[in-house]
Design a binder for these strands. Structure first.
Length: 358
DNA sequence: AAGGCGGGGGG
DNA sequence: CCCCCAGCCTT
């Protein structure tokens, strides 16, 4: 088995020669820049993140600026990235860091992980990449590299497997140049040690990689056990008033599209009662349809005209007959670009009203 | 310990 | 169509 010293030496050489050092968040690295990028990069790839990161930093250049910002504005900058609790946690975290730590992250792992949205891996990344501390990380790239080099069995979503990988990561992470080492592990996992068609011939760890030596790189890391995802139906309302305003609801903070603006949605019993007089949605009521797939279910949506329903579907003051805990408001069509809208809702509205994608 | 939570990219 | 991804939080 490769020694920790040899492992680190090879990875640091890889970093020096081939590591990425030109990404936007690697210029003038600060706790803030590392933190924002790390949160964006959770479950999201570099290429996707870059434009979001640049816009975000342009609008919120410092953690104090972010702390002072409106949550709606933060969510607007996040719209399209998904996992919107990340944006809420980011904003809440900024406030706490400014209020409790004068704008600088606590530089101790057991303290930094108490902040919202910062777990063990992100905390380790901030401390090692921005503050030069010796803390290990364990993101998807590091997991894949370690699972292959040490032939770790099992899907790493299982806690027992993750625990083993954490142990390996801590064991092989060097005390010095930890940030460079961590960056090298992420770079290696994202480039040569990709999930499909890894380029082992160029990998500094190829002489030590158990998966390669046993010709099993394709099998490792073990995949997540797959299961069928259900399809859900929804009926949404597109209400437009005489001032060309659209009725939207702000979704509750947690759950799908938390905190974003969406179309009012009829819940199944209400669909039944609202449409009781007509068993089927007629062509006049139907405005359009769209589909969207989440990680855990398919969603098929009928968009109908609330004015065509036999009973009044929505009381805009009380929100009765739309989901509870949602704010209802009318928005000008030409102001839609200023709102935090979920991608499929945005695409539908833009298409329907012939709004140009920016 | 397991499940919830998006959306994009690539095969 | 499929799978995967720079995880964290709640239950």
């Amino acid at each position: 088995m490769i020694t920790a010293k040899s492992f680190a030496t090879k990875m640091l050489k890889f970093y020096d020669e081939l590591g990425r050092k030109d990404l936007p968040w690697q210029q003038n690295k600060t706790g803030y820049s590392v933190w924002v990028s790390e949160i964006m990069l959770q479950q999201t790839q570099v290429k996707t993140v870059i434009p979001y990161y640049l816009r975000f930093i342009r609008s919120f250049p410092s953690i104090k600026a972010l702390a002072k910002a409106d949550i709606d504005s933060v969510l607007h900058h996040w719209a399209g990235l998904g996992y919107y609790s990340r944006a809420r946690n980011l904003h809440a975290c900024a406030k706490r860091v400014v209020d409790e730590f004068d704008g600088e992250f606590p530089q101790q792992l057991d303290e930094i992980v108490k902040l919202p949205g910062i777990g063990e891996s992100t905390g380790g990344a901030i401390l090692s990449l921005a503050y030069g501390q010796s803390e290990a990380i364990l993101d998807g790239n590091v997991k894949r590299v370690l699972a292959r080099v040490f032939l770790v069995d099992g899907w790493y979503g299982k806690s027992s497997v993750a625990k083993e990988l954490w142990h390996l990561s801590r064991t092989y992470t060097p005390k010095t140049r930890t940030g460079d080492f961590n960056q090298a592990m992420m770079d290696l996992g994202a480039s040569l040690c990709a999930r499909n068609n890894p380029i082992c011939s160029e990998c500094p760890l190829s002489p030590d990689c158990q998966a390669l030596l046993q010709n099993k790189t394709k099998e490792y890391p073990h995949r997540k056990p797959k299961k069928a995802i259900p399809t859900k139906q929804a009926t949404m309302l597109l209400g437009v008033n005489r001032s060309k305003q659209i009725q939207l609801v702000k979704r509750p903070p947690s759950g799908i599209w938390g905190g974003l603006w969406s179309l009012p949605e009829l819940e199944p019993p209400q669909v039944k009662s609202s449409l009781a007089s007509n068993k089927k949605i007629s062509d006049e009521k139907m405005i359009g349809q769209f589909k969207h797939t989440f990680s855990h279910f398919h969603l098929e949506v009928d968009v109908i005209d609330p004015n065509q329903l036999s009973t009044s579907p929505v009381d805009i003051k009380t929100g009765i007959m739309v989901e509870e805990n949602t704010a209802v408001a009318w928005h000008n069509i030409d102001q839609l670009t200023e709102l935090a809208l979920p991608t499929p809702i945005k695409k539908f509205l833009y298409r329907h009203f012939h709004i140009k994608e920016k």
